[in-house]
Computed example of a mutant assay.
Amino acid sequence: MKFSIFLLFSGLVLSPVSAIVKTNIDESRIIAECLKSYGGLTEENAQRLVRFKEWSEDYEEIPCFSKCYLKNMFDIYDDAVGFKEEQVTRQFGQVLYNACRHRMAPLPNKCVEAYHGFNCLVNLEDDPFVLIESMANVSTQAKMVMRDCLHLFDQYQWERMKEYKKKPVREPIPCFTKCFIHRLKVYHQQKLQWNIPALRTHLGVPKAEANIQHCFALRRNGDICAWMYQEFTCFGLAST
């Protein structure tokens, strides 16, 4: 799940003030309420919200905004109990909750406590290693291999991991798929043949009874990274 506050940030306009927020009515109302003690949705506060998304490690641009926003928008935080594990897990998954548990630890200052947790959830939501660990129907061995393969690429490319779930035509990190496919030995290079049972065991594709014959008809060119990604993606998209 994505924090809808990013929809707010992406729609910020500094002038006119009446056009500052382009988001859903409920969120607009909640944000206005959380900014009430700071004068509401003004141009100045719009600029502060833009700075807010820079996510300073410990400094909250608008003090106590996170506590108010999380409590009223998502119901994942409460002054008495702190972060609600069940609600956080339901909305963001167990892996992300576990990764941020240390940043959700109780603190005397509840505003700081809420901001620390909010900061972590937002910053790690698209963390490539969290994304890998969160992959459904992927074996533990496959996740380990993917992590190892990712380390072979420059870190500036890691942020592209989030694009894989969209299954784009071109591979977001060229040759990443080839790396884990070869290491898992789910494709026999000499026979030019996929090991379908092993694919299902380690990577959860293709689904049982899925029609994948058209995947084998894809044109293979000299770029093994490209066609291997395309065929692997085709297996995942194939319907039964």
Rank of each mutant, 00 (worst) to 15 (best):
F235R: 01
E231S: 05
W227I: 05
P63I: 01
N195G: 09
E231Q: 15
F52K: 05
P172L: 04
T201A: 13
T89V: 13
I181Q: 04
C68F: 02
C175N: 07
Q141Y: 12
P197T: 06
H188R: 13
R147M: 12
M1F: 08
P108Q: 07
C34A: 04
N211T: 09
C120A: 11
R200W: 04
L131R: 03
D126K: 09
L131Y: 02
L199T: 02
I173Y: 00
C215I: 08
H182P: 08
F9E: 09
P106F: 11
R220V: 08
L184H: 02
Y156V: 11
K2M: 02
E231G: 06
T201G: 07
L131K: 03
G11T: 07
N211H: 15
E54Q: 14
P128Y: 08
I30C: 00
Q213E: 14
F129N: 05
D79H: 09
F129S: 05
V186L: 05
F65D: 00
G11E: 06
A238F: 08
K165C: 06
L8V: 10
K84L: 15
I76M: 02
I20V: 10
H182I: 12
N24L: 13
K207H: 10
W227H: 08
N98T: 10
I181D: 02
V88W: 01
H214D: 11
Q189W: 15
M135N: 01
Y97R: 11
S139A: 01
M144H: 11
T23P: 03
K71H: 08
A226K: 13
F83M: 05
S239W: 13
S37K: 13
A136V: 09
C111F: 03
H202S: 03
N98H: 15
D58S: 15
G82F: 02
S66W: 03
F118Y: 14
F129W: 08
E33T: 09
K166H: 13
A210D: 04
L218C: 07
D127S: 14
G39Y: 05
I196A: 06
S10V: 07
V13G: 10
K22L: 14
N98C: 12
L12F: 07
N123F: 15
S18Q: 12
K53S: 13
Q87S: 15
P168V: 03
A198I: 06
F9A: 12
K67M: 13
H202V: 03
C175I: 09
I25N: 11
H214I: 10
G40I: 05
R51Q: 13
N123P: 10
L237G: 04
Q213V: 11
E113S: 04
L150S: 01
K178F: 11
P108C: 06
M161H: 06
C225D: 04
E159H: 14
P197E: 07
E163M: 14
F118K: 02
I224H: 10
A198E: 11
H116E: 12
K167A: 15
L199H: 03
F3R: 00
K84G: 04
V81D: 10
T23W: 04
M135Q: 08
Q87K: 12
H202W: 00
W194D: 02
S28I: 10
